[in-house]
Every structure is written in structure tokens, then in C-alpha cells.
Design a protein around this nucleic acid. Structure first.
Lengths: 214, 214
DNA sequence: CCCCAATCGCAACTCGTGTTGCTTTTTGCA
DNA sequence: TGCAAAAAGCAACACGAGTTGCGATTGGGG
């Protein structure tokens, strides 16, 4: 990681110490996390943290940006279902690790801290923007109609993970990810995200593409 | 509402004053909300609040429980699609009003406050438990297979609302609710929530019930 | 009608977060 | 090597949340 991005330089050293200390404390739960504790764990004065990052959320945002830069390759297997499935598993792995803690902490701060809100929004705007490629590819392949609303579909794919992470407290396991991907796939195939047919009676599987009933 | 649930009695009067003051302040945004401000607005000493409710979140939980008791009737139109649609619109109306603010505030506090977490979890355990009736009814009607996982389906229906409310910041309008309901309906009809077929290849619309291809 | 228990008000206090002014150290560069 | 700018350390402070002890008020039951 970018822990020792320039071994010389006190600033870089402080930055690295703060970030790694934050990682460590974050593993012990968000409730334990505070600027002063980080400063103490990092062997750094708290004013240094406040001056550089403004906030606790600033530090978290900095940590998150490391993950944002390390983008995982978006699956492209040539098939919508497997792409969505792999994408969901990717999300699952992201949510259940350290970035999950980060997201939780930042989302929790968001309603009171506009900057935190913007960090979270920006992060997912980018992620969702990348992820929607799997839908676009399916459209290009002819698996889905031209006017498919890719962002909306990605939203439906990702949403259940957030629900379980932020609201309910149920496990996010492989089976869950699989089912979530399948649900998104089914909705896409049913034409739910293709505004062609304007409103209601949305469930009739409107055989848009070829693989339905003859 | 239960604002003046017993006009006599100082305790009841204080309780009512605090709750209505909280409502008022909550409308001005959660960031402005604090115990001392509530006490001031209610013309009550802050110790009274701390003693009775322990927390700011305790007050919010109390307010939330009023909504919990005023359960909206679960739609039962005799058709899965319209039931889901009405359910989604119900959720939308709930999310975009005062209870939405309440949920947001409590969800934000949850990672730091175990009691807040439990309040939110309990609230939605009950709500989801009620909502799953629409799926159960569809099963009873023969619209869906017996082994349909109703709670999972409800989760998929509800999740996008939380995503938009807590993470992204996009409007929750009628069209959004309609699409979300349609997505859940499509997934249900595709057999995504019917464990019959164990794993992968989940998208082939597995004509389990009668209303698919002859 | 009066008294007792519960609850509220009040004021002082603790404690942790975040701020500020100033000094000291470090680093890049001449 | 020496110097100026930038960043970190340090200590004191402001501020608000939450706590505590005690006296005052209230309302229901004898």
C-alpha cells in the first residue's frame, strides 16, 4: 500500500503512522475510534491530525481513497449472469473487509458531516459508474435492449449489501451475493430497466430478447 | 397522535413537550439536533431528558415507536404485482416523511450506539415481518412456489430505498418505487427466491408456476 | 386532606473534542 | 553549509455533552 510512499520526509512519515494506526483501531470497532486515540497510537500530536485532515472523517476518507485507486477489474466473462454474479462477489469481498468498516463509519457520519457525505457519494458514484459496464456489455452483446437503464440495475444489485451492512445485521455471505446477483439479472431480463413499456403491468416477462418463450 | 395522551400529570406533559419539540427540530435537519436544544425548545431541563431517555437516540426511538404502532395496512389486492407496487409506494411515503429522518438519524447513530442499532433492527424486523405477507399471499394463491423465501424477497424490495436514503442522495419518487417493486416481482417470478434449483444459472425463468409459457 | 414516592429543576462539575498561539524541528534549496 | 518556508510539537484554552447531588414540585393513595 501507500504506507511508505516516501520513506524520507517527516510529513510522509506522520501521514503513514496516522493511517496505519487508524487501520489498527478501526479493526477494533468504529465506536473506539477517535482522533485523540489515533494520535496516541500513532505517536503523533493530535493537532497534526486536525490540521492535515480537519476531521476524523477526513482520515477515513483518505484511507478510503486508497481503495478507490486500487480498482478491481470489472468482470467481463461474455455472459450477463456470470458477470453479475462475479460483480456481486466482488462487492461482498469489499464490504466484509476493512473497506466495509470504512464505509460504515463514513456513512454513519454523513448525516452530520457534509464532507463525509460527499466522500461516500463520490466513492460510490465512481464504483457504480465502473460497475455499470457489465450491463453495457450485455447490451452491446444483444442480451439486453438498447435503452436499458444500467445505473438503476447496478443500484438494485448493490442495495441489499448496504441494507445488511448499515441497517439490519445479517451475514453477507456467498449465497446472499449469489441470490442478489440473480435477482438483478432476473429484473434486467424481465425488462424492468428498459423504459420501452412505460408503466404498470411491469412483471409480464416481456420477451424483449431472444431467450424466452418461442 | 399520542401527544396529549393524558393531559393531567406533569410527566406526561414533559414527555409530550419533548417529543413535539424533537419533531420540530428534526424537520430542520438531523445535524441541528441535540439534547440540549430539545430541552430548550421544550422548555424542559436537559437532565429530565437524560434521565428518562438516556440518550438522544432514546428520544428518537420513542418517536419511532409511535410510527411502529400505527401500522399501515399491508396491501392485499389479490395480485402479486399490484401488492408489491403498493407496498413499495407505502415504503416510499414512509421514507420521505418524518419517519425517514428518524430512520436516518438512528441508522447513523447505530455504529456507535448499540441501543440505537437494536432499535433500528427491531423496527425493521417487525416491518419486514408484516410486509412478507404479500409474498405469502401470492404463495397461497399459487402465484409462487411453496418454498419461496419471502423475507429475502422483501429485503430486495426494500433495500434500494435505504441505499438512496443513507448512501447516495438521489430522489425517492413514485417512478423509483414502481421500478423497485417491478424488480422484486421479476426476481420472484424468475424463481430467484425459491431454493428448488440450488445454484447458478439462476436467470433462466424457470416456469415454476402456471402463468408462464404454455 | 395530607403525605409519600416519584419526578423535575437547578447548578455545579467532569471529561473529551476541537482550537489557537507560539516554539521547535525538519526539509528543500541556494 | 546555512537559510527560509513548511509542518510538527506543545500547552493552554473554549466549548458542549453528559453526570451528579440536592432541594422543590407534583400527583396519586391512604
Amino acid at each position: 500500500m501507500s504506507v511508505s510512499q516516501r520513506p524520507g520526509g517527516r510529513s510522509a512519515r506522520v501521514r503513514a503512522a496516522v493511517l496505519t494506526a487508524t487501520r489498527g483501531l478501526l479493526a477494533d470497532g468504529y465506536a473506539e475510534l477517535t482522533v485523540e486515540r489515533i494520535a496516541q497510537a500513532a505517536g503523533v500530536n493530535k493537532t497534526s491530525i486536525y490540521r492535515r485532515w480537519t476531521d476524523l472523517e477526513g482520515v477515513l476518507g483518505d484511507l478510503l481513497s486508497e481503495y478507490a485507486s486500487a480498482v478491481a477489474p470489472i468482470p467481463d466473462t461474455g455472459n450477463l449472469d456470470t458477470d453479475l454474479e462475479e460483480l456481486a462477489q466482488l462487492v461482498r469481498r469489499g464490504m466484509t473487509g476493512e473497506p466495509g468498516e470504512l464505509i460504515t463509519a463514513l456513512a454513519a457520519a454523513a448525516p452530520r458531516n457534509p464532507r463525509a457525505a460527499q466522500i461516500v457519494r463520490g466513492f460510490f458514484a465512481e464504483r457504480f459508474g465502473l460497475a455499470k459496464a457489465v450491463v453495457d456489455h450485455a447490451v452491446a452483446r444483444g442480451e439486453l435492449p438498447q435503452d436499458t437503464d444500467a445505473p438503476a440495475a447496478i443500484e438494485v444489485l448493490g442495495a441489499p449489501f448496504f441494507l445488511r451492512m448499515l441497517v439490519i445485521d445479517e451475514p453477507i455471505d456467498e449465497e446472499f451475493a449469489r441470490r442478489t446477483a440473480a435477482a438483478a439479472a432476473a429484473a434486467l431480463r424481465a425488462g424492468v430497466f428498459s423504459p420501452a413499456l412505460p408503466a404498470s403491468s411491469a412483471s409480464a416477462p416481456s420477451n424483449i430478447e431472444g431467450n424466452a418463450c418461442p
